[in-house]
Design a protein around this nucleic acid. Structure first.
Lengths: 159, 159
DNA sequence: ACGAACCGTTGGTGACTCCAATGATTGTGC
DNA sequence: GCACAATCATTGGAGTCACCAACGGTTCGT
């Protein structure tokens, strides 16, 4: 051709939304890669971590706590209970519910995932100085809180 | 129940990767919402913008320029050409290729999408002061560049 | 006891990304 | 010139994350 020399950096590449989503894509890939080496994915970690933090609960309750949609919770619990990382037991006091709880193996798996996750954070923020990392997380946290409030506003378990 | 009072903020909620992906999720939703009101999605905008910036090209070439996977390019071009926003013509000099080009309607649509996108950026960054916005985009850009280099390293059409 | 609300489950949608395989076409090496 | 390699468009699939509608079973409020 006769017009390719132009190295146009693409209009959208400077937009905050692009920077955010692309960086997040890298972050997600790093996390997923770290998890996949132990046959896990994001939902697995979130569920295990939620279970350890707030204890056994019904799937609906866990969904509220972890932000995982109830219908996705089914598959997640299935996958984890197939590998004996969580246990699904009937609630004798309410036969609608399954009470999901962490097994010893699940707790061990969680430790592994936490370690993987921590290493990923390092990798993700590698090019930034400690100070800059704080600035970044601070700004992101503010953005996140702002948008969480106006839409969804999840994370309310309190009565 | 009898044990919900604990308001555990969840371990992962402070991790940079969580903040990033969640904020990006909001960003993506805002952008998608803005686009969907004119029946468009991210790929449509990216393709239209790429076409305007670097001119008509084959689908493979457009894929390289826009970062859209070739197999997704097919569907994207289909959708846009169905609505006469782009044109798919056979390349007389190479019968393997389709030469995709922008129509007048496509250019108009691009103007609309750009306007939507710009408004979305405002919405996204609403809680941040102008100075903070610059800091954020700067940090994100550095992260993105870093990770773009080590993986993929796409965006190289020049020799 | 009846209806409302809740629970788990199934099955589907959508966006974005990526991969493998295929047939047609072009270019290259010999 | 011809066989082989490379390129192009296309199809079909996968995987992650998120969300929705509907179902039957269960419990709760009235």
């Amino acid at each position: 051709m006769e017009n390719p020399p132009e190295k146009t950096p693409a209009a959208w590449e400077g937009t905050p939304s692009w920077l955010l989503t692309q960086t997040a894509h890298h972050a997600h890939r790093l996390v997923a890669d770290g998890f996949s080496s132990v046959r896990a994915r994001g939902y697995h970690y979130r569920l295990l971590a939620t279970l350890e933090e707030s204890g056994p609960a019904s799937q609906a309750e866990l969904g509220r706590r972890s932000g995982i949609h109830v219908s996705d919770m089914v598959a997640t619990v299935n996958e984890l209970s197939d590998r004996r990382l969580v246990e699904r037991a009937l609630d004798p006091s309410d036969r609608r519910r399954n009470i999901v709880s962490l097994t010893a193996a699940g707790r061990r798996q969680l430790r592994v995932l936490e370690e993987r996750l921590a290493r990923t954070q390092e990798e993700l923020l590698a090019p930034l100085a400690p100070e800059e990392r704080q600035v970044l997380t601070g700004l992101l946290a503010r953005l996140l809180e702002h948008h969480d409030r106006r839409s969804g506003a999840s994370g309310e378990a309190r009565s």
